[in-house]
Design a protein around this nucleic acid. Structure first.
Lengths: 336, 336
DNA sequence: CTGAAAGCGCTTACAG
DNA sequence: CTGAAAGCGCTTACAG
């Protein structure tokens, strides 16, 4: 449909207002779902927007709506920015800030270069966390962590719960000989996933449970090597739980190379929910968008109050094609 | 330093203008490096901005500057959005659009859901490219490709040149027994990298060159498996060139598992420049930011003109620790 | 070389 | 329930 002022004119709230015969304020109220618009008016406006394919301009919304706050995201040198998980959480944060009309800026790794004032800063867990927190504290800038750490607001997935979930599902399917592939660094989330897994095994206290734990590099290659070595050394788990999906992908690769039937002989469960990496992967999924949402909430809250709030976002079990019942006849039988 | 209107006030151009004793217009001209500002004025303004740690608000700039155009990025279902390369190009595009004050929006995978009008759309190469181009053409929306394709504007790295570069370096270091690990899909860039590599070998026409090519999955695991199998089958290249860095990382892993000295016995060269994945990786690096820059240029140009422009962005050779001279005594010697 | 003013597209008190 | 108007922080003709 031709717009009256020329086809290349950007569609704005003004044009919608004109065609709908109401004021721009009313259009805005419809967009923002304010309750103060008459039903008829609302529907008429929506129809016009629909007909013209109008979408409000996010940049203008942001400038107009925003809280006057600037949030920084501080990615240090340590994080693996190329990891799939990081890529997802990053995009989730962007999307969230756009929706919340909050300005965000990426800080340089070296904070001494930062001249600009930030109302709050979002960080990821990293090796030099303490130093960074000190740097922020000395500037009086509140910090919020994706992860958790004593004395600072943060949001993290339910790592222990995820570990328990994985254990419960494996046990319910009859798996007794279990292998846990962990990362070789002492990372808090890794510890919690392991602890959760173990606690569920303890809680169920079934006969014949055998758990072997191995540690290695938290990558596809790391998972591959651990699984390959374990198998070569005669370990014959029926259920494998991996601290992160990358390792699960590697472990699956190794099992495939041995001609092992999945999930006929061995079931594999990962953690994070990156099924895009490996369609059909069974995994404990993080709610990445939810975490991003909470992180922004916490950051905004931290500007006004020094209260430390730690949020846990639930995880869910994504059942794919790499999980099945333990092979018949092997249940409860001791390792060869 | 305390701002006169309260410490929590957002620092704006108005405050800088007030403290510098000039108008907002002048501040803006300094920010934008217009040549029409007196040297003294400029320096004074810069000093004030520096002292206060002022940074212009990108959102306001965008709203005020922008070309009135909306660019869409169309990521289909096909791309591996979790790949490191995708993650980097995505962030580069974001940054570029921010700098260029161009509005951008991600389109849903299914274009029939798109009601909104886009002035141009940026796409990546994918399986259903033709169908997508047709969909855009029927709407009269110009498309620009990251990659290249007949009849459509696009920007791509110099894939053939990169292949040649890799070959030239390996040859110059005395490597004669070469292995090329390629992806198992017929992707244009893969073909061009291979062709470039081969063409340099042909051009130099040295004695004793042996090139083996293998194809496999374009992942770390794929590279690992190809290298492992090749080695197990007795292939003893001194130089390995991989179509993408992921494969190089995998190949290096396999060689490590065999206890092969790198680069003493074998040199490995990747493609893309993802040294973050593997510090010290020798690789043909793409200029990702440059590609993003050109892509936006082309998209903006496509709005005004139907001309088809194909841009090639140069690559560079990143010399890391996985490249060295061919082992002495093995040069020019035939394979065992 | 610089200032005053209009404008980017939207939101939101303030009236009515 | 709705309109008119001011404002978000910046840029850019237009004068001078």
């Amino acid at each position: 449909m031709l717009l009256s002022r020329g086809i290349y004119m950007k569609l704005t709230i003004g044009e919608i207002a004109r065609q709908a015969g109401v004021s721009k304020g009313t259009i805005s109220r419809v967009i923002n779902e304010k309750s103060t618009v008459a039903k008829d008016t609302r529907e008429m406006v929506l129809a016009v927007m629909e007909r013209l394919g109008y979408q409000p301009d996010p940049v203008a919304r942001e400038l107009s709506m925003r809280s006057k706050h600037t949030l920084g995201i501080w990615v240090g040198a340590g994080e693996n920015r190329l990891s799939p998980y990081f890529s997802l959480i990053w995009r989730a944060l962007l999307r969230e800030m756009q929706v919340r009309a909050t300005q965000f800026v990426e800080l340089p790794a070296d904070i001494t270069e930062v001249n600009r004032r930030f109302d709050a800063v979002l960080m990821f867990r990293c090796a030099d966390l303490e130093a960074r927190l000190a740097a922020l504290a000395s500037r009086g800038t509140p910090a919020v962590l994706i992860g958790h750490h004593p004395g600072i607001s943060g949001v993290a997935p339910d790592d222990p719960g995820g570990g328990r979930l994985a254990a419960a599902r494996l046990l319910a399917l009859g798996h007794r000989r279990l292998l846990y592939l962990n990362v070789n660094e002492d990372l808090q989330w890794a510890t919690e996933r392991a602890t959760g897994f173990q606690s569920e095994l303890d809680a169920q206290d079934l006969a014949g449970i055998e758990l072997t734990t191995r540690r290695g590099e938290g990558t596809v290659l790391g998972g591959y090597r651990m699984m390959r070595d374990a198998w070569q050394q005669g370990l014959r788990p029926t259920g494998v739980f991996c601290a992160i999906d990358e390792m699960a992908v590697g472990a699956l690769g190794a099992l495939e190379d041995f001609g092992v039937d999945i999930p006929g002989q061995v079931s594999v469960v990962g953690f994070d929910g990156l099924t895009e990496m490996r369609p059909g992967l069974t995994t404990v999924a993080q709610d990445i968008q939810g975490i991003a949402h909470e992180a922004i909430d916490l950051a905004l809250a931290a500007i006004d109050s020094p209260a430390v709030i730690q949020k846990i976002v639930p995880v869910s079990f994504l059942e794919g094609s790499t999980l099945g019942p333990a092979p018949a006849g092997k249940r409860n039988r001791a390792k060869a």
